[in-house]
Simulated scan of single mutants.
Amino acid sequence: METVINTTYTPEEVGFDIPKQSEVKTTKGDSSHVETDMAESDAWINDDGTLGHSIRNKEGQIKSTVHVPHTTATTNKVAVKEKEIPVPQPYPVEVEREFTVMEQFKLAVFWNLVCAVAVSLIIMFRKPLLTIFRKIIRL
C-alpha cells in the first residue's frame, strides 16, 4: 500500500476582542499622558496636589492573518505499476564476406603466440634481467 499525504496552507484572517479594562490610581508627582493602539492613558493633578492617572483599552478587534494547514491523505492499494516497454526485434546484419580458414586460425592463435614470445624473451635475457633486478633491490 502507498499513502500520499498532501498539506496545503491557506491564509485565513482571524480577530479577537480587546478586553475592556479600566484602572485609576492617584499619586504625588507631575502629569503624564500615554496612548497606544490598544490603550489610552490620561493623567491629572488633583486639588490636594496628588496625581490622578486613568488608563482605558480601546474598543475593537485585533485582526491578523494566519496560515492554516489542511492535510489530505490518499491511499493507493496498488503501489507497483507495470509498464510495458517494447523490445526491438533482432534483425539480420549483412556481412561483407565470411573469414577464411587462415584468418580464423590467425585470430585464434594470436594471444597464444604473444604469450610464447614473451616467455621466450624472458628466458633468453634472464641473466641480464636478474643482475639489473639485484642492483635495484640493493639501492
Rank of each mutant, 00 (worst) to 15 (best):
T72P: 06
P11N: 14
V87T: 04
T72K: 15
P11Q: 10
N46K: 01
V24Q: 14
K58Q: 04
V93C: 15
T26W: 09
N112E: 06
D30K: 10
N57C: 03
I45V: 04
T8W: 10
T50S: 06
W111M: 15
Q21E: 13
H67K: 12
K20H: 15
D17A: 11
L130E: 06
L113V: 10
R138F: 08
W111H: 09
D30T: 07
F16I: 03
R97G: 01
E12Q: 15
P86F: 09
I137S: 12
P92F: 00
A108P: 06
T36R: 15
M1H: 13
I136S: 15
T65N: 13
C115S: 14
G60L: 01
T26C: 05
H53E: 03
S54Y: 01
I55H: 00
W44D: 00
K58A: 03
A116Y: 04
E13L: 03
K58V: 09
D30P: 10
A43R: 00
T26M: 11
T8P: 01
E59S: 05
E103V: 00
V101F: 15
N46R: 02
Q104H: 12
E103L: 02
K25G: 08
F16C: 07
P90F: 04
N76G: 11
V114T: 12
E59Y: 07
T7Q: 07
V119S: 15
M102A: 06
E12N: 11
V119F: 15
E12H: 04
E98N: 14
K25L: 11
N57F: 01
D47R: 02
A73E: 05
D48L: 09
R134Y: 12
N57W: 01
I55R: 03
V117G: 08
T26K: 04
I5R: 07
E98R: 12
P69R: 09
D47V: 04
R97T: 03
A116W: 04
D17K: 12
H33R: 05
V101W: 15
R97H: 09
E84P: 12
T65C: 15
T26F: 01
E59N: 02
L113G: 04
M1L: 10
V101T: 10
T10V: 01
Q61S: 02
Y9P: 07
K106P: 06
E82D: 11
E84I: 13
I45W: 00
E59F: 04
V14Q: 08
F16H: 11
K20M: 08
